[in-house]
Every structure is written in structure tokens, then in C-alpha cells.
Simulated scan of single mutants.
Amino acid sequence: MLSLGLVNLSFASDTELKLIAPEFTGLITEAGDGPYQKIMQQVALRAGIKYQERVYPQKRAYMSFLKQQDSCIYSFTEPASERLGQQQIIVSAPLNTFSMYLFTAKDSAPIQQLTQVAPTANVLGVLGYDVWYQRAGLPQAGIQLAYTSSDEHAVGMVNLGRADMMVSFMPDMRKFADQVSYDAAYPLLISYDGITCHNTEANAALLKVISPVLGQMRRDGTLAQLLGESYLPWQHQAFKKWQQQYTAEMPESSELDSD
């Protein structure tokens, strides 16, 4: 077993991870100093791996990942799996978890279900998140979004009465939490941000090195420290149940992390 572990680490160390980075509010920046990017820097240091990161706007990032069949991307596990097939996608242990909510103006009654949204409601979304709005069922519920450039702009529009509500995510919206109303018990979806990769031998070897390091960083508090107020705790078994729905089973994947 020790010999096999050393072989895997050596293989991963000689293979460069091609990582596409979508610009996520407060998490990934063009300057390379977002919390997710700092986590990946620490992972590379601890695991002894090399990686090349390219930052793009979200839609371009996702489309680039779909076309580049040896690449990886932060998040986008479910959309990629449904687009390419479950056996074509693998994912690391999580960097974080996230949830989508409907947000209304401060001190207003929170919206708990899509069925509460009037057909004529002016609902704001942020450019680039369409694959997630689709997954949450907004188009299927007859909700037609108007788009804005950022959560900050959407919050301002809602509180000025220029929009009825907005749809966005926690932890992205934590810095605006005192300016909006929402019900934390009623997310539209819950998911995880891991390193999502095309299922190649090289990527699988890299993720088998990366995932235990991410698990260690969760347990020793490094993820919470680097993410700050954006950190949302999760249970490993809940992640494993989610992972099995959307990605190919990796050898020894049950040993990659534990509570």
C-alpha cells in the first residue's frame, strides 16, 4: 500500500493540472487572490503538484472546460456531468458548499418556494449563472430573469424597488445579508464546489492526491481560515451521496476524505 501511494504521488507531481477558473463573486478573481485560489495554492504546496490556472468569465470558463477534454474547472460538476455523461466527469473533495436562494428587500417577507413568485414579478439574476438557474428550475417555473452585472447591483435594485427580488447564492451573498431578506431553511438548490475534471487517467491520479489534502485542510481548519465568512460547513457523507449522482466512481474514493 505504501509503495502504491508513492507511485501515485510521483505521477501526480510530474503532471500539470490544467485548471479553468470561473470568476465567482468573492471567491475567484482575475488577480488570482480569491479564497478558492488561495486554497488551491495551499493544496499544490502540500501535495507537491503543479497546476496552470486561467481565469475567465463564468460562461466562457464553462464552455472552455467542455471543449478541452483534459482540463479541470472549479465547480460546475452537475452541469458538466449532465452535458457530457456521468462517467466522463470526476470531482475532488469539496473546497466549499453553496446554496441558491431568492432574496427580497430588507424587512420584507422572504420567498420560500418558486410557486410564490408571481408571473409578472421582476426577478434579477447575475450574468453567467444560467446553468445554475436552469438546474434550480426557474425557467421551468415560468420565471423570466432580467440580468445584471453583479450581486451588489442587484441588491441595490431590489432595495430601491426597481426589482421585486433577486436570485443568488450563499456564501456569495453573506456580505449583503443585512440588506436583504431570505429564508435559509428553503434553498432552491444545494451543491458543492470541488475541482471538476474530465475523467482521464492523469486527472484521476491528480484528484487522488488533491482530495486527501482538501480533507486534511477541512479538518485542520485551513479551509475555514482561508474562506473566512464564505466558509459553509458540510458533512462528508452528504457530499459522498451527492457525488455518486453526478460523477464517475473513483478507485478508493471512500478513503479520500472522512468526517
Rank of each mutant, 00 (worst) to 15 (best):
Y56P: 11
K241D: 15
S168W: 12
D178V: 01
Y186P: 11
E249I: 14
E152H: 15
L189C: 06
V131L: 13
Y56N: 12
T115E: 07
A238P: 00
T97S: 09
M40L: 10
K67T: 07
L19E: 06
E249V: 15
V55R: 08
E201K: 13
I49V: 03
R162W: 08
N203Q: 02
A177I: 03
A204V: 12
D178H: 01
S150D: 09
L19C: 04
Q37D: 00
S13Q: 13
T104S: 06
D33E: 06
D193F: 03
T120W: 14
Y186T: 15
G228N: 09
S254H: 11
Q216N: 05
I90S: 03
Q134W: 05
A177V: 05
G128I: 15
D130N: 14
S149T: 15
A163I: 13
P110V: 02
Q216K: 06
L114K: 03
N96M: 04
M250P: 05
M170I: 12
E16I: 06
V213F: 00
Q37R: 01
V7M: 12
P35L: 06
A44H: 01
R162K: 13
E16V: 14
T120I: 12
Q88M: 14
V158Q: 03
Y62A: 04
A61T: 02
R54I: 14
A12S: 08
E16G: 09
C72M: 08
K240Q: 13
L84R: 06
S230W: 06
S64V: 07
S230P: 03
G194D: 03
Y133I: 07
S258P: 05
L2F: 11
T200A: 10
Y182M: 05
P35A: 02
G156Q: 04
S99K: 10
D164Y: 00
N199H: 09
D107G: 00
M157E: 06
Y62Q: 07
L227G: 01
G5F: 01
T200Y: 08
V123E: 04
Q225Y: 14
F103C: 01
M166R: 00
Y36V: 11
L188H: 10
D70N: 15
S92F: 05
M250H: 06
F24P: 08
S258N: 12
L124D: 07
G137T: 03
E78H: 13
